[in-house]
Structures are given as C-alpha cells and as structure tokens.
Design a protein around this nucleic acid. Structure first.
Lengths: 190, 190, 190, 190
DNA sequence: ATGTAAACGAGACGGTACGTCAAGTCTTCGC
DNA sequence: GCGAAGACTTGACGTACCGTCTCGTTTACAT
C-alpha cells in the first residue's frame, strides 16, 4: 500500500546518465552530478541502484544500442550485405554519442567483469544472430560452403568492431572492403 | 649539484603499481596507497608522474607485456605456426597477473584514449610484425596467395586476442583451431 | 464518521520514548526508531506531535516524575523532615531510569527553553509546595523565624537537586546533612 | 618534519563555534557550517577534533567563561562582597552571548557527561575558590563562625547560578539580596 | 671540506565525492 | 478519514583521496 516507485525519477536518472556519458565520459560521471542533473535526490538513486555501473547497465539496456538496429534486408549478395553491415556499424560507432557509450561499456567491462559480460552479450548477440542468419541463407543459396561455421565468422565481425571502437581507429571503406573480402574468401564456395 | 632522482623510489612505485593492479584492479589503485606501499611520499610521485595512468604506462612499458614475448621460430607449416602463437597468447592472457594487466590497459584506453592508443601500439606492434613476417614467408613459399594483405590478417589476430581478453571468454584449443583455419582458408593458395 | 485517534498507538509511542530514553539517551532517540519500536507509522507520529521534544514532554507529564512523589508526612522536626526529603530525592535521582529522564529534561531545557521551562515547573512545583508548607508549619510551631521567606529556602533545595543531577555528583548522606543544616541555620529561631 | 598545524585554522574554527553558538544554539551547529564559516575544510576539523562537543570544549576553555572573571576585591563586608559577586554573575549570565554559551554547556553535559563534568569544573572551580577564600577571610575577621564549612556555602552559590541559567529565571536584585542574606545568616556569628 | 640546491619523507591543507542516516512531506491503499 | 507502509527531497554525517603546499633532512656535486 505504500507509494509506488516514481517512473519519472527513474527515467530522469537514466537520461542524465546518457547525457553525462557523452558530455564527460564514464569516469567523470558522479552520482551527485547525476542526481542534480536529474532533479532527483541522491537517496533515490541509492535506493534503486547499487552502483554507477548498474545505472549505466540499465541505461544501455533501455536505450538503443549502436549496431543493434541492424534491420538491413538480405540482398542476393552475401559479401555486399556484410560489407553494408560493417560499414554501417563502423559509421555508427564513429558518431560521438556512441563513442562515449561504447567507451563506457568497455570501461565497466574492465572494471566489473560480471556486469560487463552481460552487457556485452546484449550488445553482441543481435549482431551475431543477424550475421549467422545471413550466412546460413548464403549456405542455402550455395554461395557459402556448407561446412563453414557461421558463428566463427560472426565472432570475427564482432571482435573487429569492438577492437576498432576501443582503439578509435576508424573503419574506413577501404578497410571494410579488405576485411570482409578476406573473411568471405575463407568460406566462399570453390 | 642537486641530488639526482632516486632510481629506487621509481622502481618501488612501479612495482607497487604492478602489485596493486593484480591485487585490486586498476580502479581501486590510489596514489596514496601506491605511496604507502612503495614507502615513498606522495610528493615524490607527483613530482615525476602527472597521473595514475602515466604510472601504469611506465609500469607496462618497463615490464614484460603478455604476448609480446612471441619468439616462436618458423616451422614449415604456416597454419601450425599461427595456431601455436594464438594458443600461447591465449594461455598467457588467462594467467591472473596478466588478466589484471590487460584489464588495466583496456580501462585506460577507454578513459585516456591518447595514452591508451600509445600503449596499445606497444602491445600490438610486435605481434603484428611477427605475424606479417610469418605470412610473408608463407607467400614466398607459395603456401599463401601473393595478393593477400598480411596486415589485414594480422589485424584479425590482434582483434580476436583483445576481444577475448575483454570479454574473458577463454581461447580454447577448439576455438583456436576453428579461428585459425577460417582465417587461413581466406588466403591459402587455391 | 472519521476513525478516532488510536489511544493504543499514542501509548505505544510514549512507552517507546521512555524505553529509548533510558536505553540510549535523548539525543540518540529518533522518530523513525520510535515509530519502528512502537509499531506505528512515522506519519502517525507527525500527525499528533510537532517534535521529538513534544513527545518527551507528554511522556514525562504522563509518567511518574522522580521526586514528585514526595508524600512524606510531617514529623515534629523540620530539619529531619527536610533531610529526609533531600535524601530520598537524591536516591531517586541516582536510579538509572531517572538519570536518563532528568538528563533528557535538562537537554530539552537547554534546547527548547519554552517547553523546558514548562516541564521544569511540572518538576519543581510540587517540591516547592511541599517544602513551603513544611516550613510554614515550622513557623507556626516557632521553630523557624517568622520573617524568613519559605520560597527562598525551597528554591535552594530545588537548585541543589537539579545541579546535583546535572553534574552527576551524588547527594551522599554527609552532603545532605551539611546542606540541610546550613540552610536551616539561616532561618532557625536564634 | 611535516607542515605544522595551522594555528589560524584552529582559531577560525573556535571563533566560528562561538559565533554559531550565539546565533543558532548548540544543537543547530553543524560541522559543515563551522567549516564553511571558518573557511576551513571539513577534514581539517575532523583531523583535530573528534566531535562537535570537543570543539565546544576547546572554545569554552580558550575563551572567557562568564563568571570566571571574578576579580572582585575584598571589602570589609562579606555579605556585600558576595552580593556583589552574585549580582555580577547574574548580569553576566543574562547577556545573550553568555546565555548561548551556558545553554551549550548544559546541553553537552546532558549529552556527554564526561566532557560536561570536566567543563563544569573549569566553570565552577574558580568561583568556588573565590567564594571559599572570601569566607575564610571572614572567618579570620570573626564575621563568620569558625565551624562553618565554606565549601558547602560556595556550592550553594554555584548551584543557584547554574539553576538560574538553566531555567532562564533572572537573578533580580531582590532575589540576590534575599538569597545572600539567607545563606549568610546560616553562618554569621551569633 | 664545504656550500648549495634539488630530491625526499612526512603530512597538513582546501576540496570533491562517497555512501549512510534521519528528518519531515507526500502518496497509495486497506479498514 | 485514520493509519500502515514506504517513496520522496533535503541536508548533515564521517571517510577516502585528490592534488598542492610547506616543513625539516639528506645527499651528490661544484667549488
């Protein structure tokens, strides 16, 4: 019968976290700053989240993850499709808001492995699914060898994306072409 | 005529950093703790290093980087050599002291991109060199296609290694086999 | 037909205050603790009392005040009667439950003069009345000079009692004897 | 060999305490407020004082205690001298700054008996000494009976003063006259 | 051998943020 | 409409480190 949790307070905090993240970076985010920015008291934050990382986690899960919005349709050319995906992901990751998000994600992972792993799954799983599905289709079409393991290939894509984000080295069209070409060559029929 | 910088103080601090790193993780390291542990005054630390990250940097540069000691000789089988390298690197990264080091490296990178990038180069460059050299030799031997770009392949190896370290997913022999096989298939002659 | 104020809630709160007082001291008493201890909600307390001091006040007014239960009968010897009263009061004040009560009383007085003064009157008035009556009787008997002001003497008794309670210095039989003897000498006939 | 404690910081804190005391009362004094008012960091306060009460103690010990400045010279009339002292003490205690000080003193005593007792001694001892000395002189002069105990009388003065301060009832000339007259009558020769 | 100037330990200082506690107010629901 | 439960804002608590600033003391080198 008590008063129910305030949804608006919750949203304000998550929004403040997203804002602070791109403004200052994860390390510089402060619970007190969040509270002030969100117009919420510190106590309300501590009542619902055990740590800064937990807020980040919820903010990421709630929001749109960069790369997660892979709604690209399948064309008849696997390599072109994957090239398209990697180029899009690379462009997304280069956008400032997302740079901050991914850096934060990496920072928590290096700091709180358990939460980090969970978030990384949330980030990587849809990507892997899409790539695996695309390659499976290519196997049906006969463009990719039947004995290739789609998951191994998908992992490479995710690893490349993550490493590019970490080091900040941009995925230029040239690199995208070379990478995808190399990875596909390993599984193409003939 | 002034008194010269104390090398022993410097070494104590770097050792304290390495110790604290594996004991508590980078985030939990404090300058005061370092000073106490090293038996050195805070001021001495601030006199010589501008930040915690800088100490980490020097500690990493001074110490043995895991994976950097790849002095494997070339056999006649490229794929076996690369499999050997990746297996060794994976085993190294799984050792506790090194987990802490790599996590710290990732944490600084996500926090201080400039320093992080420099350190990442120190970490990645020898690996890339070795892999590029091995593949170049394989091209001479005719085992790898002449038009393949060794750097692209080397990048994949580094990215995979880094991503495995970040997520903590171990590089099991099975995965190593599958990965190397796939990556080599893309460049093997016919 | 509103629900009437719950007398049992009221009693629980006052009892909790008395309990907490002797257990932890006035300063350490908290409204939340009181509410929890009394099995009552905070709001219920705030609905009926404006402050912690007010609850203390009601608890004191409701309960037995130490020293207030002076129902000693008059003997033929004024000095012996007063000695008896002061000894009893001193003994009462030394009992642990009462130490807490008196300390609390003094603390509110120093903090909330208005309430404190009211409570002090509740505490002092019966004492003053009794002493004044006893001395008046002695004046009728001719044991005390007619021109002495009984109120001035009564004030001394109360002041001594209060000061002893404040400083915690016990009223030993020796001190009681000396004090009463001195005070009576000032008003005894010749 | 470190930097020595800053005397100016110490003084600022004590001054801030004295100021806040008369402005708001002891209970309302806040360590943070003190720090802000004194232009000192909270940590500096916590480094040197374990509690608010300890600061009050030092502030009281350092400053002039009301009533402690009894430098009245002895005339040939004991009663007049004591009347003079009590009147002066009463007037002092009625001054606003001192009301706050004494209330604070009483509040700590009721809260932290050990410290309170120590402070009360600092407050009462010089008074007792002076009164005892004056009465001893009167005994030499033959104005006070040789078998009277000066300490018992001095205690009465202190108790009266303290009780008057606690209850806030002013020591008017009338009351002073009556009290001193009564107390002296008990020990005057004849 | 003696001056001297920087390095060093120690740690005080003004700060910022932490995570906790209680105060007093507000909101919901059951009786 | 009273009362429980408890979410909310507010503001102080005491702690941990930050980076800066004196302090004396030590020590290598240049006279």
């Amino acid at each position: 019968m008590p008063r129910p949790r305030s949804e608006s307070a919750r949203q304000s905090v998550l929004a403040a976290m997203r804002g602070a993240l791109s403004a200052d970076g994860y390390d510089a985010v402060t619970i007190e700053g969040l509270a002030a920015e969100a117009g919420v008291s510190k106590q309300t934050i501590y009542r619902w989240w055990p740590s800064k990382a937990a807020i980040l986690g919820e903010a990421l899960l709630e929001g749109e993850l960069p790369g997660g919005d892979v709604a690209l349709s399948f064309s008849s050319d696997v390599e072109a499709d994957l090239r398209g995906w990697l180029a899009t992901a690379g462009a997304n990751l280069a956008r400032p808001e997302n740079v901050a998000l991914v850096r934060a994600l990496i920072a928590v992972t290096a700091t709180d492995p358990a939460l980090g792993t969970a978030l990384n799954h949330r980030f990587a799983d849809p990507i892997v699914s899409w790539i695996v599905a695309r390659i499976a289709r290519a196997q049906e079409d006969g463009a990719v060898r039947a004995d290739a393991d789609p998951v191994v290939v998908a992992d490479q894509f995710v690893a490349m994306t993550s490493y590019a984000a970490l080091t900040g080295r941009p995925l230029t069209p040239d690199r995208v072409d070379a990478l995808v070409h190399h990875l596909m060559q390993g599984i193409a029929t003939r």
